[in-house]
């Protein structure tokens, strides 16, 4: 058992991978709370696809793909804001139009390169074994910025999530805070690409936060629980990946989904199954106790 736990740590690439996935779990966990509370899962998924051309251009130019992705994310998020500001096209549609457009541009650009299939594969599914020390440094730096900005603007982000009209009457510039949120979201997605890949990054944003929401009614506790669940699932998933040979992104997401399912079914107060069991324990014959009027007359 000890060997099962310690074995992976003998490899530098696995050490890097563990550190990277823990950071991703924390950063996506915190951002994910606001994503799920605001019902922006689609936006998260779309943004992950929309940064593709930035990655490809950085690849072609030989620059750092994380930087390319952040620039693309900012351009796309500003575009989403600009289109939905027009008033005739709603936000969801603007997201849809831009994300497929940008993703297609990325594919077209990538197809001009040799090794197209392999690189596309790495982008879509992540390549955690290739995390280098400099990638880690960038992940830490970007992650710190995301968490610091989240902390600084926590009150504003809470307000615009809870009551937008009141926020506006309080002098908050909703457009500006929405843009800030999109940029933070893009940064969180970008640093997750290498570990879990484009297709599965949504799971890092949504699943731990959803699990945390089932466990608590307190926003602060929800953020902490979401970060914990995300990084726990990340580390457990990597072990699974290492020992069973499952692709790392898939393994991480499967663990995360399993945790969600367990909480959903067995959480003591709200769990779908535990709730029924509890009711059964308190009311062994619910049909008789709950509906005395329907009892046949003696």
């Amino acid at each position: 058992m000890t060997a099962w736990l310690t074995d992976p740590w003998q490899h530098t690439f696995m050490q890097n991978a563990f550190i990277a996935i823990t950071l991703v779990g924390i950063i996506c966990g915190a951002m994910g709370v606001f994503v799920t509370l605001r019902g922006l899962a689609f936006l998260g998924d779309a943004l992950a696809h929309a940064i593709f051309p930035g990655v490809v251009i950085a690849f072609i130019l030989g620059g750092n793909f994380l930087v390319g992705a952040i620039i693309a994310a900012i351009i796309v998020s500003l575009g989403i804001g600009a289109i939905s500001q027009s008033g005739r096209i709603n936000n969801d549609t603007a997201v849809g139009v831009l994300f497929v457009g940008a993703f297609s541009l990325g594919i077209a650009l990538m197809s001009t390169q040799s090794g197209y299939v392999r690189d596309l594969n790495a982008f879509l599914f992540g390549s955690i074994l290739g995390v280098t020390r400099s990638d880690l440094t960038l992940t830490v730096a970007v992650g710190m910025i995301v968490l610091a900005v989240l902390l600084l603007f926590r009150r504003e982000l809470t307000m615009i999530s809870f009551d937008r009209t009141f926020s506006k009457s309080n002098g908050l510039n909703l457009w500006l805070y929405d843009q800030l949120f999109l940029v933070l979201l893009a940064m969180a997605i970008v640093i997750s690409l290498q570990t879990v890949g484009n297709i599965l990054v949504l799971a890092m944003l949504v699943t731990p936060a959803a699990t945390a929401r089932l466990l608590t009614n307190d926003l602060r506790k929800m953020v902490v629980l979401s970060c914990l669940t995300g990084s726990l699932a990340g580390v457990a998933g990597l072990y699974l990946s290492y020992h069973q040979g499952v692709p790392s992104g898939a393994a991480v997401v499967l663990v995360s989904t399993t945790i969600f399912a367990i909480v959903f079914l067995f959480e003591p107060r709200t769990g779908a199954i535990s709730n029924r069991v509890l009711r059964r324990l308190h009311h062994p014959h619910p049909e008789k106790d709950d509906f005395p009027a329907s009892r046949p007359a003696a």
């Binding site: 509370l37 809870f162 937008r164 009457s169 929401r213 307190d218 926003l219």
Partner: peptide, 21 residues
């Protein structure tokens, strides 16, 4: 917006499932 003017919006605009006390 001005700090001397307080606005109470319609209740329906807020997200009442938000985890806040």
């Amino acid at each position: 917006a001005h700090e001397s003017v307080t606005y109470v919006p319609q209740r329906t605009g807020a997200d009442w499932t938000f985890p806040i006390s």
